[in-house]
Nucleic acid binder design. Sequence first.
DNA 1: TAGACAGTTAGACAATTTTCTAATTATCTA
DNA 2: TAGATAATTAGAAAATTGTCTAACTGTCTA
Lengths: 88, 88
Amino acid sequence: MGDVWKALADPSRREILVLLRKRDMNAGEIAENFDMSKPSVSNHLNILKQADLVSAEKRGQNVVYSLKTGVFEEIMRLLMSLTDKQED
Amino acid sequence: MGDVWKALADPSRREILVLLRKRDMNAGEIAENFDMSKPSVSNHLNILKQADLVSAEKRGQNVVYSLKTGVFEEIMRLLMSLTDKQED
DNA sequence: TAGACAGTTAGACAATTTTCTAATTATCTA
DNA sequence: TAGATAATTAGAAAATTGTCTAACTGTCTA
């Protein structure tokens, strides 16, 4: 299981998540939004997948990526616990 | 203004934040909690400061660090917006 | 089934990041 | 004021990360 925080550290990867918020997209559609080679985007998608922030489903010759929101809750929990001093 | 996400990407820095959740600490006290040279810790503290995640106040020959929770809200807002699909 | 298309893998390279030791600055106290 | 203590700055080395091109795999369709 990859590092969620490291995954979120890169601005391109955060932008991918924002894109996927609107709708599921395949790798090519995602890549169109970036001034970057396709393998680079593929690499970012892989890091997001390992961090469990997106899921990938092969559909024909495309791979459709979707946002996975489950992990966010965990992150938010940690952030909230930092916000509330002295708890724990 | 430094990058908050990059600041949060490092596990040692996140641990520093958790330490400061309990109470304010000076640089030396923080460093005691890590198997790392003092300059390295100092570097991490500087990155956290630039990201506005901690504040530093010189008190005598010590520098006391405190958690700054303001920025978390911004992060949480972004995370929440990702959680709620299709909004915006 | 041959060629085109979508996507990933492999390998190399450049940039960034983390860490160290040594040196420096600032403050306290005997 | 001299020496000790707290912390940072400087500069270098090692590790990690992001990016590229070239090559490969799998799927579709004419």
